[in-house]
Every structure is written in C-alpha cells, then in structure tokens.
C-alpha cells in the first residue's frame, strides 16, 4: 500500500474567534501534502471528538487563544478516551504558557505550539509523531 496522505482535523474550541492562525495552518498543512478537515470555530469537545471518529483522522489540531486550554483540553481528552480513539495525535497551538505544558502532556496532548511557531516545524512534528495505521 502506498503512503497515504495524513488526515488532520483542525478547529477551535470555545467562543474565541481568532481564526487567522488556524486558517493559515490549514493551508500550510495542505501545502505539506496533508488532508485537512477544517471545522472552523465555536466548537465543543464533544463535537470535535465525534467528527474525529467519523473522519478517522490521524491528528487533531486545536487552536486556542482564549486562555481556556486548561479547562477545555481535559474535556476534549476525556471525549477522545470515551470514544476509544486515543491513538490519534493531539496537537495544541495558541497562547499556552510554558508552565502549563507538563500538565497538558500528562493528559495526552502530544505537541504544544506557541505564537511564532513555524508551519514547517508543526508539519515536521506531525510527520514524525503520527501513528501510522495499518490499512
């Protein structure tokens, strides 16, 4: 079986409307040969996890500039666990203080990217860490 494109779900949790970064990332990952299912903003953890199941994505990318990551990410990780799709790679980007990073890793968030992160670095991280599913 030939190498298939990596499927990435991208979206924003909560009421935060700053979608510039996530849109730029959507196009950037497309340019890195990935298939991005772009879900937009104002999403709940339950919605994200439901879509992740149906789309059988390899990666869930969440953008959060609202500072609410320590409330919303645990809720998302719980939804992911409940649906038994814990093999998905979870990546978080936004205004995330370094001090929150250990706790985020602890709950299963694999990658944390802050403002100023380059798309190439994010794409490389995904490529290196994505769990390849056997077809």
């Amino acid at each position: 079986m030939s190498e298939r494109p990596i499927r990435v779900l991208l979206g924003k949790l909560g009421l935060d409307g700053h979608d510039r970064g996530v849109k730029v990332l959507a196009k950037g990952l497309r340019d890195h040969g990935m298939e991005v299912i772009y879900l937009g903003m104002r999403l709940t953890p339950e919605q994200i996890a439901t879509v992740a199941v149906q789309e059988d994505v390899d990666v869930i990318g969440i953008s959060l500039l609202s500072g609410a990551h320590m409330r919303l990410m645990p809720a998302l990780m719980e939804e992911i666990r409940r649906r038994e799709i814990s093999d998905v790679l979870v990546v978080l980007g936004g205004t995330i203080p370094e001090s929150d990073e250990p706790a985020l890793h602890q709950m299963g968030v694999h990658g944390v990217f802050r403002l100023g992160a380059e798309i190439d670095d994010i794409a490389a991280f995904i490529r290196e860490n994505v769990p390849r599913k056997v077809g």
Partner: peptide, 22 residues
Amino acid sequence: PSSHRTGGAVLGDRLRMMTTVL
C-alpha cells in the same frame, strides 16, 4: 478537490454541516 501541486487538501464541506454533528 486536492491540490494538484502538493497532493494535500483543505476539506471544508462538513464545516457547513456542524449543527447536526451530534
């Protein structure tokens, strides 16, 4: 559609179908 250049794609259709996602 996929990008002819990179083979990647932004799939945005279902974003317009979010109200019934649950």
